[in-house]
Structures are given as structure tokens and as C-alpha cells.
Design a protein around this nucleic acid. Structure first.
Lengths: 141, 141
DNA sequence: ATTGACCTTACAGTGGGTGGAAGGATTATT
DNA sequence: AATAATCCTTCCACCCACTGTAAGGTCAAT
């Protein structure tokens, strides 16, 4: 299979597949014409990577997961640990975004959004009484 | 004020402040010794930027917001539009992350996480149920 | 005079690719 | 057989928003 075939079959852009070879995630053979020659197992790996990436796993996580996948003596605990850490990262990101959204929604609600210059959003961003890393707030609340 | 002072007062790393100068977000003066000389207004801008960034606004959004902030003839509608678009981006990201988390949580729950190799997480990532097993394209090589 | 804290620039690296140029190989059409 | 279209190759640059590091200049205190 050429790169175009595995790209279609795996759903990954050819560019991404070349990049994955670059960083050592797949090692396709080479045909005599210099084209990459992908085996079934390469396609399988790429599909695995595509799914892992779509769950948000980092490339390094993917590398570990792929290693574990190919290790018949793995312990599922090792896989689960990676997944749990990733879930916790997602949870932290979700909390961070939710907080941003909450603040943003308040400001949006307060803004008339008309032709006048008065704007609570800008007023909040420009507020001089609260520093970005305000020690007073941490102490007070 | 030197860069260390505004870094402390704004909560932004000095590196970031230099970067912001690089991309034209602030234009501090220069002392005779070559040090950046920040005015109150520069500090104010940097604090503004820090708060906008902490709400997740992109640098380009921040540039627009700063421009609007300094434009006394602005319409609050312009500010609100930026904020609304940003809120929608956050909402899309939240939905994406929530979906990842949901799938991940299912897999984690199904995984024993012990010494045995059997692992539903890996099984799911390796699932061949999609277009991976297309015999026609694979036969020729 | 020397330490140490502060400042400067410049370049490289992060993650995870994406875009494009320049050129070789293969396939399809004329 | 020539040509065009498509596919493949490598290489380099770029995206975002910084962050790290090296090599060196400046300043205040001892």
C-alpha cells in the first residue's frame, strides 16, 4: 500500500502519516521506487493512533499505548494508569474552560452590544483594582 | 519601571512581556542603558492583556480588544461580538472535551487495571470494525 | 574589585501538525 | 510515443503563545 491508500483507509492525512514515521511511531518499508510501502500492521497501527489521538491522548501517550498494545505481557493497570491521568487532565481543562465561560457569560450579559462605547467587558479587563495574580483575593476569599 | 517591575506588577513573566513587545502589543520606551522603560500606561496594557489572555482570548483577539479599549468612539457591539465568538469557541471545545471524557470514562470503567494483559481500552483503540479491513485495496501488493 | 541581581539579544524548542516548492514516478489519455 | 494528471519524495517554513538557554552588558552593594 502506498501512503495515499493508508491515508484513505486510516482517515489520517498523508502529511500526518509521514510525520508519524518521522517521530518513529510507524516504520513502513520502502519500495524500489522510494515510495513508502505500508503493511497491514502499519495500517493497523495508524488506525490505532488515529483513534487514540481522537480521544485526546498526547503523542507520547500514544507511543506508550502502542507499546503496551504490542506487549503481550502487559498489565492492564499500566494502560489504565495512562487513561486515568489523561482523564484527569481533561477534567482540569474542562474546569478551566467552564470557569472562563462562566466569567465570559457574565460579562456578555452585562454588555449592551449597541453603538455606544460603554462596555462592561472592557471595563472588567481594564479594572485596576484587581491584579492578574492578586494576593489580596487569595487571602480574602 | 524596568521589565522586572512590570512583570511583578502585571503577573506576566518578563519573557512574555518581551514577546508582547516583539509582536507589537506594547511599545515601551528605552532608557539610555538600553533597558526597556515602561510607563504606567504600558503596565495598564499588560494587565489588560493578562486578564484577556486568562479568559482565553487569542492574541489577535487581545489586539482587537486593546484597540477597542483605546478607541473612545468604539461601539460596545464590536466588543460583544468578539466575546460572543470566543464564548462559542469555548462551548465547542467544552463539548469536544466532554465527549472525549465520556468515552474515556466508559473505557476506564471497563478496564480491570490489574496484572493481566486483557484491556478493553486497548481493544477499543485497536478495533478493526471500520474501513480497516478493506480486502480489495490490500490484495495487489 | 567583585559578587550577584538584573537587563539585553539571538536562537532553538515545545506540540502536533500544515502548507508549499521542487522534482521524480506512475498512470491515463491522446 | 508524447503528454497530462496524479501520486510520491524531500526539505524548509510556518502556526500559537510562549519557554529555555547562552552569551554578554549594566547596576547596586559590599
Amino acid at each position: 500500500m502506498n501512503i495515499g491508500d493508508v491515508a484513505r483507509l486510516s482517515g489520517l492525512p498523508a502529511k500526518t502519516i509521514r510525520y508519524y514515521e518521522d517521530i518513529g511511531l510507524v516504520q513502513p518499508l520502502r519500495s524500489s521506487n522510494g515510495y513508502r510501502a505500508f503493511r497491514q500492521s502499519d495500517l493497523h497501527k495508524l488506525a490505532f493512533l488515529g483513534r487514540a489521538r481522537s480521544l485526546g491522548f498526547s503523542i507520547e501517550d500514544c507511543r506508550c499505548l502502542l507499546e503496551l498494545y504490542e506487549d503481550r505481557n502487559r498489565a492492564s493497570a499500566d494502560v489504565k494508569r495512562i487513561a486515568l491521568e489523561h482523564r484527569d487532565r481533561i477534567d482540569r481543562k474542562l474546569a478551566e474552560l467552564a470557569e472562563m465561560r462562566r466569567t465570559l457569560a457574565h460579562l456578555i450579559e452585562a454588555c449592551a452590544g449597541d453603538h455606544r462605547p460603554d462596555c462592561p467587558i472592557l471595563a472588567d479587563l481594564a479594572a485596576e483594582d484587581t491584579d492578574v495574580c492578586e494576593p489580596k483575593c487569595l487571602a480574602g476569599e
